[in-house]
């Protein structure tokens, strides 16, 4: 267990909802219920589930934005929710995140180079050897584009910029929350390939969250299927796809199948 980069142990997160009537006890929603998994360096774990399955709550807890009610999240053996605010901020150089909406995740008033350098500034570093330019080239853009504004880029290019920002501190874990869901199919494949290339080059581990089973299975080694806060199935992608144990997983499979093309 000590060689695990990320270890999530029996994590539960519940939300107290507004009471329905004045005297009733407020209902409690278990967003994540007793979830655990391990992720080694360089590996990719996929989490599949619908909206409301708890997968995004899980991502926010791994990123340290939300505190689990019970359970622990260890990053390199350290409980990230046991860190002080300052230590957690400094630890963020090691785990970064890519978001779903390529149009919302970049400040429209800032040049993209400024946004990409943000994690460096957060760590108190300066971009003295043109790391922004190199990060742009790593994601398939040109260093000279750092001076442009987000609206000058297409959705796919913006997602590349968001990825450049996420890798500039050389993290060992990348959390991708629906990172290709908003993209057109032809662009989606480019971004998935880019993530796989970066993973090979930088030895990144990835937590890849999506509602699309086909997307997840194309990029991941192991898979977690979640529904209503609980893990339904876990295992290697081949195991889960080859012998789905749960109706829900079978429905996901059916939804992702293109008739006559890839009928498993």
């Amino acid at each position: 267990m000590s060689d695990d980069l990320l270890s999530v142990q029996g994590v539960t997160r519940r939300y107290v909802l507004p009471r329905r009537t004045l005297l009733s006890t407020p209902p409690v929603l278990a967003a994540v219920e007793n979830v655990g998994f391990e992720l080694s360096a360089g590996q990719t774990l996929g989490i599949v589930g619908e909206s409301g399955s708890g997968k995004s709550t899980l991502a926010r807890m791994v990123m340290g934005f939300e505190r689990p009610d019970t359970g622990k999240i260890l990053f390199k053996g350290r409980d990230i929710h046991g860190l002080s605010t300052g230590d957690l901020r400094r630890a963020r150089r090691n785990f970064q995140m890519v978001f779903q909406d390529p149009f919302g995740s970049l400040d429209p008033r800032r040049r993209v180079g400024w946004s990409i350098a943000e994690p460096l500034r957060a760590m108190g570093e300066t971009d003295n050897d043109n790391r922004v330019g190199r990060a742009l080239e790593q994601v398939g853009l040109q260093a000279s584009q750092a001076g442009r504004f987000p609206h000058e880029f297409s959705g796919g290019q913006r997602q590349r910029i968001a990825i450049a920002r996420a890798i500039i501190t050389r993290p060992s874990l990348l959390v991708a929350d629906e990172a290709v869901s908003a993209l057109d199919v032809s662009v989606q494949a480019q971004i998935l390939n880019l993530l796989m290339d970066l993973q090979d080059d930088l030895g990144l581990a990835m937590l890849f969250i999506s509602h699309d089973l086909a997307v997840v299975s194309s990029i991941c080694d192991t898979l977690l299927v979640m529904q209503a806060g609980q893990v339904l199935e876990a295992g290697t992608v081949n195991d889960v796809l080859g012998a789905p144990k749960h109706d829900y997983t079978r429905a996901l499979l059916a939804a992702a199948r293109v008739g006559g093309v890839a009928s498993p």
């Binding site: 990123m63 934005f65 901020r89 400094r90 963020r92 150089r93 970064q96 995140m97 978001f99 779903q100 909406d101 919302g104 995740s105 970049l106 400040d107 800032r110 946004s115 943000e118 994690p119 500034r121 957060a122 760590m123 968001a162 920002r165």
Partner: peptide
Amino acid sequence: REYVFAARAAGMSTFAISRD
């Protein structure tokens, strides 16, 4: 906004996010 969330994920402090 998501870009503020992204700035938090990047490790920016609340003060720096408010300013930037």
